[in-house]
Structures are given as structure tokens and as C-alpha cells.
Design a protein around this nucleic acid. Structure first.
Lengths: 180, 180
DNA sequence: CTGTAATTTCAGTAATTTCTGAAAATTGTA
DNA sequence: TACAATTTTCAGAAATTACTGAAATTACAG
């Protein structure tokens, strides 16, 4: 671990805590991403000065997010961990998991609320707002689905399109027959 | 506050805590979104059973995110708060603020690390990974910039395009002369 | 099956974050 | 300016979350 690697690991520890992971999990994941070889729990604990059990819990969390790959070395009983080579796969997995954990329950809640007729003026307005939220979330998720279905190269090209997205919009609407 | 409104407010309280706000801030904001009239701090505290000072801190946090509008009623000294009518404006502001608080510092860190030549093999690999991260984050932010520059209608039309985005990609690349 | 290496669980503790009430500061009005 | 209404600050309390070490469990080699 060189100092600049350590700085990066610490930074992702801080950032992780703003993204729903805790500091430990953020640091472990950054370390795994920056390391060429697979690391075992003891390696991680020694490098980051976490207790063995803390590392175990962090790795379990990362596994529940499907963000690490478990590998075994021949003639070695320990479990070693790696991260996907393609960074896009990591991003896609995070989007997928956050959707499952956060977005889907919200969709369910909003939909079930909106099937009930409003009881009064106040609720009628609240439902109008909930309808707006629902619309945005539905659009965003259907669009996230599209992203999930693209391979990394296509996705990278789409992003590279950059400001062109605006220009392309009109043509897209003609093609799909959408827009008014 | 009808029961279904309260359910929604509580839900966003829970969700808020996964998005870097605390429960209080999430509940206050959900309440403001669902309420047609502007609310003052006392209204909010009474409805959600928070202390006056807790409401004050929550509103301060929301103001620092530029997510609430401060309004005054004639002949009334209290401060009242509302949320933007257009839900897209809310989403755009959140993207903008998260970028400022989380993405920009990360970009700075990665860039400053990557200008230093690697000291050894280990660091060379780490830099390769950091370069991948940097590439993705740069692409994502330039694309977020495009979104910021669109008005709500354009944005909504883009999302509605849905799966068409894939099809449109090839044409886009011809137009902008990008891709290989 | 036995023994050992490794991982996981979990109860208790430490650290952090959130929340409150009281006091201070600010704002607008007469 | 003085006063009252309102908001903000902040030190400490309460609640939550993270972390540890010890014990339990699992996995595998012989």
C-alpha cells in the first residue's frame, strides 16, 4: 500500500458513508479495487487495522451487494476476494441493487396509496404530488433498465455522446413516433 | 395529515437516511412536498412531533441543499416553507448538490493522484484502476451537465424515449462524428 | 470421523449521530 | 430605541450504529 493508494482508500471510506455503506465497507472495497491480486480477510484486516470480525461483516455486506467475487487459491484453504475488472459492471450492479432495496419499495408504496380515492381536499393534493413522484421514478427506472441491458462498450459510447444527446432527441422522437 | 400521507412521510424518512439525509430531514421534506400550503416550523414540529430546534436544524439542512423556498405571509412574521412545483427541479437540484459535495472532491483526488508517476508495480496497477474510475465519473458528470441544461419538458421527453435510446445511439454517433 | 484452519455470529462496548431544552441572537414593529 | 416574536445555537442526553473479542460454526485434509 503506497501512500497515494491509502489516501484513495480513506477517501472512499468517507464517501461510502454518504452512499449508504459504512466507512469500513467503503475502505475495504476501495482496497480490493486497487489491488491487482485477490486479498483474503486477514490481508484486509492487517492493511486497514480492522478486527477480523469487522472485515468479515464488511465482506458479507459487499457480497450481499454482489460487488465482490470469491476465489480460491490452489492448496490454500482461505477465501480470497476480487472485484470485477470492468468498472461499468460495478456501476451497473450498484444501480441494480439500490433499485431493488430503495426504489422498488417506494414504487409499491406510492402505487398502493394512489389506488385509494382521496378522502378530502388535502389528500387530493397530496396524491397529485405522489403521482408526480411516481411518474419520475417510473421513467427513471425504465431508463435504468435500458442501461442494464446494454454492454459496457455501448454504454461508454452513449456517455461519450455527451451534449449530442440533446440534438439526438428530436430524431429519436421521429423514429419512435413519440413526442407531440 | 391523513393516514396515507403519514405513511408516505414516514417512508421517506427511512429512505432519506439511505441517501445521506437523516430521518428528520426526510420526513420534513416529504411533508412539505405533500402540503399544498406553505408550512412554518411550528406546523412541522407539531405534525411530526419534533422539537422546535430539531425542525430548525432540518430546515437549515434543506436550505443548504436549496430544496426549499422561503415565503412570507402578509401580516405574519413567521417564515413559511414550500417546495418547487416541478418535481424535475427537485431532482436536478439534488443531482447538482450531490455532485458538488461528493463527486467534485473525488475528481480532484483522482486527478491529483494520477499526475504523479507510479513508484512501483503495485501503484501502476492502482493507477490503472483509478484511471478507469476517473473516466466513468467524468463521463457521468458531463452527461449530468447536459441534463442540468435541459428544461423539464425536454428531460421528460428524453426519459419517455426509453428503449429507443439504444436505437438512437448509432444515428447520434454519425451526427457528432464520434465513435469508431 | 477427527482435528485444525478458517469464517461467522453475537453480546457487550465504543463511537458517532441525532435530538432536546435553555439561552442567545436576530428580526420586525411600535 | 425598546420590546416581543421568532429563529438559531449549542452543550448535554438519548438513540443509533459500528466495532471488538470470545465463542460457535463451518469446511476441509488426512
Amino acid at each position: 500500500m503506497t501512500p497515494s493508494m491509502m489516501t484513495c482508500v480513506m477517501h472512499f471510506g468517507e464517501m461510502g458513508s454518504r452512499w449508504g455503506f459504512n466507512r469500513t465497507v467503503g475502505q475495504i472495497y476501495a482496497l480490493l479495487i486497487l489491488s491487482e491480486e485477490a486479498l483474503c480477510a486477514d490481508d484486509i484486516g492487517a492493511t486497514l487495522s480492522f478486527s477480523r470480525s469487522n472485515v468479515s461483516m464488511g465482506l458479507k455486506e459487499l457480497q450481499s451487494w454482489r460487488l465482490v467475487n470469491l476465489v480460491h487459491k490452489p492448496g490454500d484453504r482461505k477465501e480470497y476476494f476480487t472485484t470485477p475488472n470492468d468498472m461499468w459492471d460495478i456501476v451497473k450492479t450498484i444501480i441494480e441493487e439500490r433499485r431493488k432495496r430503495e426504489v422498488d419499495p417506494t414504487l409499491t408504496l406510492l402505487r398502493s396509496t394512489l389506488v385509494e380515492p382521496p378522502q378530502n381536499e388535502e389528500e387530493a393534493y397530496a396524491q397529485k404530488r405522489m403521482q408526480q413522484m411516481l411518474g419520475i421514478i417510473e421513467q427513471a427506472t425504465s431508463w435504468a433498465d435500458d442501461i442494464q441491458s446494454m454492454d459496457s462498450d455501448t454504454l461508454a459510447r452513449l456517455f461519450k455522446l455527451g451534449v449530442g444527446v440533446g440534438k439526438v432527441l428530436q430524431i429519436g422522437e421521429k423514429l419512435t413516433g413519440g413526442g407531440k
